[in-house]
Design a protein around this nucleic acid. Structure first.
Lengths: 216, 216
DNA sequence: TTTTTAGCTGTACAATTGTTCAGTGAACCG
DNA sequence: CGGTTCACTGAACAATTGTACAGCTAAAAA
């Protein structure tokens, strides 16, 4: 199959970037559907409609391809939470609520995407590079949450003797745990319930107005 | 290598069970060290000091071997929490504290073991058999926690409008999330901190006496 | 003892793996 | 236009994969 010869001819540079991205997308799709053990360079190439050696051409090695796919995932995630946490137009409380809701409901928290995260995490403990990536990404993530919590409780550095950083770490742990539950025990925990769990957890440290979208 | 010819000769039946268990242990060791992608029947056989076809002989297929290893893991885990949660000699509060501490500190919560859990979970979403196993195991687990919470708040079916079951699910989500943090961001969350997180979380629903082992 | 049984060996096999690389043809540029 | 560049091809590679199975040997049974 040849490069899609569209009307306004695509430059070679664009074509390369386009193919590269397609390979990354395909990689994530396969992992999502079949898990880490189902990922094969041949499969990626075939599914992308390209030739066998294409992955090595773009990424040299399979390891590199996986790492790059992982980075893509992290970038998407970062973009999502930044858009919410750092949105100055909303009140801190609004942001926190929206943040929780966004992370615990589709499209961010859909089984397909979560499966990829889990698959990568399952590999991460055995590769320092992955751990480094996680550490770096999660650090900024938690700092952003901490910052939001700080805005939520102006002046105070501690709540009930706990630093805001600690509470931020706890919240991320809780969110990750809920994601795991979604995957491992589908249906056990409804998104609404999960949101309530986080709000209840935070409610014991901050005064949050119960926001009911609609009354019964 | 021949079967270890000990002094009191081992029966054929015992030998078979022994070998079978050794293969399962080796499987878990390899997954722990290299992840799911590092698991190979040849490697298992070699590391166990046995011949190539041994895994197929005992488990027919690789899939079966993995499933059986997963079951072993679940059994160990179940044994651990049952010993604590159902220990009638301790007060409910003691049991809850011990339960949390046990699940969040070594030897149960050591990186080696957690890595295996994570590796299996990473595969689970793609095999119904695994999910079924998880669902079954987790159900009993959560029911046991719920029962303990019930003993902790006698008479009440709800707390702050939340069912005890809901709180039990939340607690397991929190514990899983902490386990994930241990692996993905080692050192970020200390066991002491993690224990405090759970206690703080539960503290907003139950009256628990802060148990300080030693004062500074 | 002799015969039977069965746990295990180790070779063999087809399939698949990640990776290499000379070749190709279209985009690029002077 | 004509020469160069380069994204991509696809056959070939050695290595490794899961699995099958005839044969061996020591335990069990007769």
């Amino acid at each position: 199959m040849k490069p899609t010869a569209s009307y306004p001819t695509i430059t070679r540079q664009e074509q390369k970037l386009f193919t590269r991205q397609k390979l990354l997308d395909t990689t994530i799709d396969i992992i999502s559907a079949e898990g880490m053990t189902g990922l094969t360079l041949a499969k990626v190439a075939e599914r992308a409609g390209l030739s066998r050696g294409i992955c090595n051409f773009h990424f040299q090695t399979k390891e590199q391809l996986m790492l790059e796919a992982f980075k893509t995932l992290y970038r998407e995630h970062e973009q999502a939470w930044r858009a919410i946490l750092e949105d100055e137009r909303r009140s801190p409380e609004e942001r926190l609520n929206l943040f929780i809701r966004t992370l615990l409901t589709p499209p961010l928290a859909d089984p397909r995407k979560l499966a990829v995260w889990l698959a990568f995490w399952g590999v991460a403990p055995h590769r320092q590079t992955y751990i480094d990536l996680c550490t770096e990404g999660d650090c900024q993530y938690e700092q952003a949450i901490e910052e939001l919590l700080r805005q939520l409780s102006p002046g105070q550095q501690e709540i009930n003797g706990l630093s805001l950083k600690t509470i931020a770490v706890w919240l991320t742990a809780m969110i990750d745990g809920i994601h795991l539950q979604y995957l491992i025990a589908p249906g056990r925990l409804t998104p609404d319930d999960a949101i309530r769990a986080c709000q209840a957890f935070l409610g014991s440290y901050f005064q949050l107005s119960e926001k009911e979208p609609d009354g019964t």
